[in-house]
Structures are given as C-alpha cells and as structure tokens.
C-alpha cells in the first residue's frame, strides 16, 4: 500500500528523468558523429563498436567549446552576483514590511513568475533594446531575482528584529548592526539562494537565446543549436554531460562550503 503510493511518481521519474539522462549519456558516447532523429536510436544500445570518446575529446579541447564554457561561467558569475544583490534588497524590504505589506510585496515579487517567460523576455527586449550582453544579463537577473528574494526573505524572517535593536542599544550603528547581526544570521538563505542561482544561471537558455547575439550564446543554447540545426546529437549530448558534471561538482562543493560555514 505505502509502496504503491510512490509508484506513480517513481514511474514518471524513471521514464521522464532517468531514462532521458541515460540516453543523453549513451548518445554522448556514440562513435558515428551525428545521430539525427531520423536514425534508429533504439538499436543504438546493442550495436557493438559504436562507442567512442570522440565527442568528449572535441568538446573538451576545441577552442570554440572552451570559449563557450568560459563565457557560460562568466555569465553565471555576473548574473549570480547581481541576482543576490538585488534579491537581498527585495528580501530585506519584505522583512521590514508590515504583515499586510509583506504579502503584497511577496505577490508582486512572484507576479513575474506567473507571467509567461516569453512575455517577460519580450518586455526585457523592449526595455533594454537590441540584443547583446546587457539585455542577456538583465533578462537572466530579472528571471532569477524573484526566487532569490523569496528565499532570502524566508531566511530573514527567522532573524528576530529585536536582536538588531539590541545591537543598536549596545551602540552599534545601523550599518554595523546590519553587517554584524542581520547579514550573518541571514547567510543560510543567501547561500541557498546562491547555490540555486548558480545552477540556474549556468544552464541559462532562454535569455541568451532570445536576447543575445551569437557571442552571448551559452552551453545550453549550443545544445539546442546542435540538436535542431546541426543535427549533431552526439556533440549536444556530450555538452549536456559535461555541463551536468560541472554543475554537479559545483553544487557539491558549494553545499560542502555551506555546511562548513553553518
């Protein structure tokens, strides 16, 4: 009975998460260069002599792909920094608002997340003008700020304001009370938001694709291009595997650091 309750989500997970990931891994190790969708993928697993590390060699050594990963990392860092900054600003505004004001603010922060992402990107286009680095960064930051703001607001809620007042009472200026009391106590929220923002911005697809020039294309955009335009599924799969490996390592390292600090 209990096990049965887990069955639907477990089946969907096996079919919709694990199997696709296994296929990506297998495709990345395929030796015949391109596998377009037209070929018989179902035979792939059983064919001897179709395994190769070629695509990984290509993805890891060719300057084009190195630049691609480099740019993706730079974008992720810029976006994460700005997202945390603005997210903290909004989260702090929620923290200091009246009970009614809190709800209004939370809803307004969440509102963009309920609008279509394409509507959103379209609006960013109108505001920030022709495609380029600035619209890409602005778009991604604006897409991610609501999550960061709400995560940080939740962490700040756990900081009793009378601690800040106590610090002020002991002679701390409002700025040093913030640096010495509020900020350290809200760090769990900031670090959680940081981890999620790094993961999401490093796999950014829509912003760079819709708001960028080819110079701003990220790994995720290149995956889509290889899948749909170049029909080179092997390279796309290898890019995916490397991206997931890097993100996994980053997530692991960041969580370890986070635990150390806590």
């Amino acid at each position: 009975m209990r096990k049965l309750l887990l069955a639907p989500s477990a089946l969907l997970w096996l079919a919709g998460v694990l199997t696709p990931l296994v296929f990506v891994l297998r495709m990345s190790l395929y030796s015949r260069g391109d596998i377009s969708g037209e070929k018989r993928l179902d035979l792939l697993f059983y064919q001897p002599g179709t395994w190769s590390l070629e695509s990984f060699a290509k993805v890891l050594t060719e300057p084009f792909y190195q630049r691609l990963f480099g740019f993706t990392a730079v974008l992720a860092m810029v976006v994460t920094t700005l997202t945390l900054l603005f997210g903290y600003l909004l989260g702090y505004a929620v923290y200091r608002a009246s009970p009614r004001g809190k709800i209004a603010l939370i809803l307004l922060i969440a509102l963009p997340k309920f609008t279509n992402i394409l509507v959103f990107v379209y609006g960013v286009k109108i505001i920030f003008g022709p495609n380029g680095f600035l619209p890409v960064v602005a778009g991604e930051v604006m897409l991610l700020v609501p999550y960061a703001a709400l995560t940080i607001a939740a962490a700040l809620e756990a900081v009793p304001y009378h601690l800040v007042e106590a610090a002020r009472g002991l002679g701390a200026s409002s700025i040093s009370a913030f640096w010495r009391v509020t900020l350290p106590l809200s760090m769990p929220g900031v670090s959680a938001a940081a981890i999620l923002t790094v993961l999401w911005s490093a796999s950014a697809f829509l912003g760079p694709y819709l708001l960028g020039q080819p110079a701003q294309y990220t790994v995720a955009v290149e995956v889509e291009r290889q899948m749909h335009q170049d029909l080179n599924w092997t390279i796309a799969a290898a890019l995916n595997v490397v991206l997931i490996a890097i993100l996994g390592a980053a997530a692991y390292t960041m969580s370890a650091v986070r635990r150390r600090l806590a």
């Binding site: 495709m27 991206l243 997931i244």
Partner: peptide, 12 residues
C-alpha cells in the same frame, strides 16, 4: 537539472 539536457534526452 539543465532543462535542455532533460529535453534532449526526452526527445531521444
């Protein structure tokens, strides 16, 4: 997970 990775696998 990067959604393009999920998407590519799901397509296959």
């Amino acid at each position: 997970l990067p959604s393009v990775a999920l998407a590519a696998g799901m397509l296959a």
